[in-house]
Computed example of a mutant assay.
Amino acid sequence: MTIELEEPPLTQDNKQVAKDLFAGTMGGIAQVLVGQPFDCIKVRVQSAPEGTYSGSIDAIKKLLANEGPRGFYKGTLTPLIGVGACVSVQFSVNEFMKRYFDKKLDGKPMSLLDYFYCGAVAGFANGFLASPIEHIRIRLQTQTGNTKSFSGPLDCAKKIYQTDGLKGIYKGLGPTLIRESIGLGIYFATYEALIARDLKQHPKLTRADIPAWKLCLFGGLSGYTLWIGIYPVDVIKSKMQTDSIKDPKYKTSLSVIKDIWRHQGIKGFYKGFAPTILRAAPANGATFAVFELTMRVLG
């Protein structure tokens, strides 16, 4: 299946790359501001010991009772900087790969699989940045009440490094790379397919004419396909990254899988799924809309 998109000629110069990076950063900041409360609940439900929360609503109630509304934005500084950088990498590498395929195909339409490859390469590259950033963010998000092991992101990174070196900082890298590669392949391919479908239904319009609300809708739907496709991998990653630093329970992803299956069965791989799906539409809708609109402003 080929996807015909009416776009301006793609260029590979440094100026274009800088635009991609800046627009991606803006999209990442929008994603964090919109999605952080949902993400905080997701991580707590995923990683808490069995019986801590009866569900997402219970986690919300306990967070509000113990920490107030500000608790939803615990550890926000790390993702605000980090996710901005991550989404910047995701979108800039994806755009770079689209330009690569455009040149390789000599301007012929890219297929859905080509767009998947572009997203998968972007996801793999991003995984090396996302893994330590998410590890630190998760450590901060799961600190409850007055029991605090870390005073902030730098203190967290320092203590992890002192205990387990660079290997500790990059704990969960394997499942992160799998999640990002497959997930972002699905993510960007879905978005481009939706854009192509809309342009086919309105032949007189160009990509720049698509209204912001549609960009949000397409981004939200892409977020759904992303998380439905890779959610169990995210649970495995979160379990590894909330494991004890000094006396870890899990040595590999396989040990996490075995433990979840033994104690919770298949449902254990979908803990925290509700807040993730609720977050998917607004967070990813905002990400794509802000990226596209920023690119239009930059020309």
Rank of each mutant, 00 (worst) to 15 (best):
Leu80Ile: 07
Asp106Ser: 12
Thr76Ile: 15
Cys86Trp: 05
Phe116Lys: 04
Arg70Thr: 09
Lys148Met: 01
Gly55Cys: 07
Thr52His: 01
Leu154Gln: 08
Arg70Trp: 11
Pro79Gln: 01
Lys62Leu: 00
Gly123Trp: 00
Met97Asn: 09
Thr78Cys: 12
Lys74Pro: 07
Leu140Ser: 09
Val121Asp: 09
Ile60Ala: 05
Leu77Ile: 15
Phe96Val: 11
Ile133Trp: 14
Gly75His: 04
Cys86Lys: 09
Gly152Cys: 04
Phe124His: 03
Ser92Gly: 11
Lys108Gly: 05
Asp114Ile: 02
Tyr117Asn: 09
Leu140Ile: 02
Asp106Gln: 13
Ser149His: 12
Phe116Leu: 12
Leu80Gly: 04
Gln141Cys: 12
Phe116Ile: 10
Cys118Asp: 09
Glu95Asp: 15
Ala130Leu: 10
Thr78Arg: 04
Asp58Met: 13
Tyr100Phe: 13
Lys108Asn: 10
Glu50Tyr: 11
Ala157Ser: 09
Phe72Gln: 08
Gly82Ala: 11
Leu112Asn: 08
Ser111Arg: 04
Asn146Val: 14
Gly75Met: 03
Lys74Val: 06
Ala85Ile: 15
Ile133Pro: 03
Leu129Met: 11
Leu63Pro: 08
Thr142Cys: 10
Lys62Gln: 15
Asp106Gly: 10
Ile81Tyr: 14
Cys156Trp: 00
Cys156Glu: 00
Leu129Cys: 07
Tyr115Thr: 04
Glu50Phe: 09
Gly127Val: 03
Pro79Leu: 02
Ala157Asn: 05
Cys86Glu: 12
Asn126Met: 15
Cys86His: 07
Lys148Trp: 01
Tyr73Ser: 01
Glu67Gln: 15
Gln90Ile: 14
Thr147Lys: 12
Asn94Trp: 15
Leu129Asn: 02
Ile60Gly: 03
Thr52Trp: 01
Lys74Leu: 09
Glu95Thr: 11
Leu64Ile: 00
Leu80Cys: 04
Thr78Lys: 05
Pro49Lys: 14
Cys86Thr: 14
Gly75Ala: 03
Lys62Ile: 02
Tyr115His: 05
Asp102Pro: 05
Leu77Thr: 13
Arg99Ala: 15
Phe72Thr: 04
Asp155Arg: 01
Ala120Thr: 01
Ser92Leu: 07
Glu50Ala: 05
Lys159Trp: 01
Ala157Glu: 02
Asn94Phe: 15
Asp102Gln: 12
